[in-house]
Simulated scan of single mutants.
Amino acid sequence: MTATQHPTMVISMNTFTPATGGIDALTEFQLAEMREMAAAATEQGWLGNEVYLANDGSALIVITRFRSEADRSRWAATERFRRHVAELEPLLADIRATPVTFLAANGSPLRRK
């Protein structure tokens, strides 16, 4: 997926720090929810996720992509996403969402703003 394919694409790097000792429960929950929500999220402009586990097991990192900020906002306002957040909160010590901009992949030319 490139920025050329979706020039208004919104990307967020979300770092989830689990409640003490809960990385396995957090990971299991997030992966199951992603499968469960995929069709509904796609209808709202979701382009997909990449999921990473910190090597030391301290965090789950999820890179999330939407076609546009309007699509991301529309998904965030749905009942299904609000329910996901409510069920996720007890598993977390902290969450940090960082908006990022795609620059390059595998040596491709840098994206210029």
Results as ranks from 00 to 15, higher is better:
T2W: 07
A3N: 13
H6Y: 15
P7W: 15
T8Q: 15
M9W: 00
V10G: 00
V10H: 05
I11Q: 06
S12D: 14
M13E: 14
N14F: 04
N14S: 13
T15N: 03
F16Y: 12
F16I: 00
F16E: 01
T17Q: 10
T17I: 14
P18L: 04
A19C: 09
G21E: 06
L26Y: 09
M34G: 12
A39S: 11
A40V: 00
A40H: 03
Q44N: 10
G45R: 00
W46M: 15
N49W: 07
E50Q: 15
Y52N: 07
N55L: 15
S58R: 05
A59S: 09
L60S: 02
I61K: 03
R65Y: 02
R65S: 07
R67S: 09
R67D: 11
A70Y: 04
D71A: 12
S73E: 15
S73T: 13
S73I: 07
S73K: 15
T78W: 10
T78C: 04
R80T: 07
F81I: 01
F81P: 01
R82Q: 15
R82A: 13
R82W: 03
H84W: 08
H84Y: 13
V85N: 06
V85A: 14
E89G: 03
E89P: 01
L92C: 03
A93K: 12
D94Q: 14
D94H: 10
A97R: 05
V100A: 12
T101K: 12
L103V: 08
A104G: 00
A104W: 00
N106I: 03
P109S: 11
P109W: 08
R112I: 14
R112E: 14
K113I: 13
